[in-house]
Write a protein that binds this DNA or RNA. Structure first.
Lengths: 153, 153
DNA sequence: TCATACTTGACTAATTTAGTCGGGTTTCGG
DNA sequence: CCGAAACCCGACTAAATTAGTCAAGTATGA
């Protein structure tokens, strides 16, 4: 799971869509203005989101985008995976080092980390974000967390 | 917490150090050869590790590096923090968007993610890696995990 | 039929990352 | 005391990635 600002923008845009999607399709121009993300860039992002069946488009005047399914069935992980290439893997296939037995050890470590991150992001649904956004505009969120293990540093 | 190959190399190098450090200082040249990491690059990494007090150096012939404290008191998070700039923060301070209330929501999300990652990495000690390396050279590790929550995708 | 809005993909600029280079400085062994 | 072993350090560069633009469409509702 890769994390870049691209993924962040996508989540923000999807959230905007979820929040404003009640009355018909939402235009990218609208999202662009509200979220201050360039239209061209949104187009690029929504192209990917559409191909991954997270949103559906309605063309022509009055058109725009709407969620392809209920916000409760879309996770943050889905969104990020859609826009960031799936370059997951612990980088252990392309490079030189990472050999004989040393390999597998750190390899496993990164793999575990990956699934920890993926697990966290899979646990947060778009509807969670919508809800938090509606009930507590500005405040601590603590999303879905219960026993947020360790968490220090 | 940023994750790059630099951090991975650092962890690998520290592990090598922990494994070979029993009989006096370990030279970077040795690590370089065993782990196939360029000497110059190791020098750069160990400069940082030293400044963060994770290793200590012994100069002159017969010198090298050794851990600054017991492997049980060094975590993977310590190592990664030492070599990768602390550019933690959810990128929410320098950029434009991320405004009014939308801001705080995704902001909190990334912040939580950050601490999840940091928590995971803080939970893995260098000694854990050494142990796993010694007992199960090639196999599934599952480091320190117990109830690795959710974990799918 | 035309303005609105999505669609596509190539292109570019900026940033970040990975890694090198060249010069030190310290200290041991002979 | 001198030379080699080893650390030390900061500037530099090349490659890769990311962020974002541009241009040229296509579909469709009013």
């Amino acid at each position: 799971m890769k994390l870049t600002t691209k993924g962040r923008f996508a989540v923000t845009a999807m959230l905007d869509l979820a929040l404003h999607g009640a009355q018909g399709p939402v235009t990218l121009a609208g999202i662009s203005e509200r979220q201050k993300i360039s239209l061209s860039y949104l187009e690029q992002l929504f192209g990917k989101l559409r191909r991954r069946d997270l949103v559906e488009s309605v063309r022509g005047p009055g058109g725009g985008y709407h969620l392809a399914r209920d916000a409760a069935r879309i996770t943050v992980a889905d969104i990020i995976r859609a826009v960031d290439e799936p370059i997951d893997s612990t980088q252990c296939g392309g490079r030189e080092n990472c050999h004989d037995h040393h390999r597998c050890m750190t390899h496993e470590l990164w793999e575990e980390l990956n699934s920890t991150v993926a697990g966290f992001l899979s646990g947060v649904k778009l509807s969670d974000l919508v809800e938090k956004q509606r009930t507590k505009p500005i405040s601590v969120v603590r999303a879905h967390k219960r026993e947020s293990h360790i968490a220090s540093a």
